[in-house]
Design a protein around this nucleic acid. Structure first.
Length: 299
DNA sequence: TCACGTCAAGCAGAT
DNA sequence: ATCTGCTTGACGTGA
């Protein structure tokens, strides 16, 4: 099991997600920003290795406006050496990487323009992983998308759009159950038509499910990951849907986490911790898992 | 130096 | 109709 966190390391000074306003766009500004983002990304990955964190989500802001029509710079060519260097480090250290396009990327949109821009954004994310020559266990994850008052049609539109994607995208794309629209059952319906692997988000499942227990859910999604996809990816965060606003919590609740681990320890999976304190929760979890599994009961 | 309005982009659900 | 959350901030103008 690899433990990971998303995008930003709060212990480091640097950020790999620096961006700028669209109206300030220039090739020079882009070059400078991407150079600094890539430098910080490598620094972050080195921090992770020094702290035994082997799973990481790379920020979508790595190359600002990469899929925007304003982009007039061949960043892939210009930074190929840097991407290759980072990719070599990732492979050498056996790190697993994911990326997660933002909420504006809606593959099943009923608006042609939104669909087209989403496709461009998806291609950008795939390009980053391809430039680093990472294997197919490194994934780009999406939610299924909008419902538009007609769920079955919208779900089928996702399936159609998926089938029309090129192979290099299909090999990396995975879907995740969300907290409002498309739950585990819906994702499994899509899987049956597409064989797309499913990332299971434990917290989203608590918000939106069809009665499956965590154990049943793990069983169901485990089969959606083929050998070349790597072991299943699970997302975990600490807050319960009922108390207060449903949002990701500040720190990890170790008692809750221990229960979760006990329930799921017969499965092999990599775990992305979506907690606000980022790497701090990952460090705690790694320490606990390393020291003594019997500690679970004592937390 | 700091507060705060704004930033490329979509959708759903609450107010 | 407008605001908020999403993954949960950063930019940059104006005081």
């Amino acid at each position: 099991m690899k433990i990971g966190y998303p995008c930003i390391n709060l212990s480091l000074e640097c950020r790999s997600s620096h961006t700028f306003r669209l109206k300030n766009y220039s090739k020079e500004k882009l070059k400078k920003t991407v150079k600094s983002n890539l430098k910080c990304l490598l620094e972050t990955l080195k921090y992770n290795i020094n702290h035994k964190i082997l799973f990481f989500r790379i920020t979508s802001d790595l190359v600002p406006f990469a899929s925007h029509q304003i982009m007039d710079f061949n960043w892939k060519k210009h930074f190929s050496k840097e991407f290759s260097e980072i990719g070599n480090f990732i492979k050498k250290k056996n790190i697993r990487i994911t990326m997660h396009p933002g909420q504006y990327t809606v593959l099943n949109s009923n608006n042609e323009g939104v669909y087209k821009r989403s496709l461009e954004e998806l291609i950008y994310h795939i390009d980053v992983l391809d430039l680093m020559k990472l294997d197919k266990s490194c994934k780009v994850q999406l939610h299924v998308g909008g419902v538009y008052g007609e769920k079955e049609n919208s779900l089928n539109r996702f399936i159609e759009r998926y089938h029309s994607l090129s192979n290099n995208i299909k090999e990396r794309l995975v879907i995740e159950n969300d907290d409002k629209s498309y739950n585990l059952k819906d994702c499994l319906q899509i899987y049956r038509e597409t064989q797309i692997p499913i990332i299971f988000d434990v917290y989203h499942h608590m918000c939106n499910n069809s009665g499956e227990s965590i154990e049943e859910a793990f069983q169901l999604i485990s089969h959606t990951w083929e050998k070349e996809d790597g072991i299943p990816i699970i997302h975990y965060s600490s807050e319960h849907p009922h108390k207060g606003k449903p949002s990701h919590s500040e720190h990890i609740d170790l008692k809750d986490f221990a229960e979760f681990i006990q329930k799921t320890n017969i499965f092999d999976y990599d775990l992305m911790l979506e907690i606000k304190d980022k790497e701090q929760s990952a460090l705690r979890v790694i320490k606990i898992l390393e020291n003594d599994p019997r500690l679970y009961a004592m937390i």
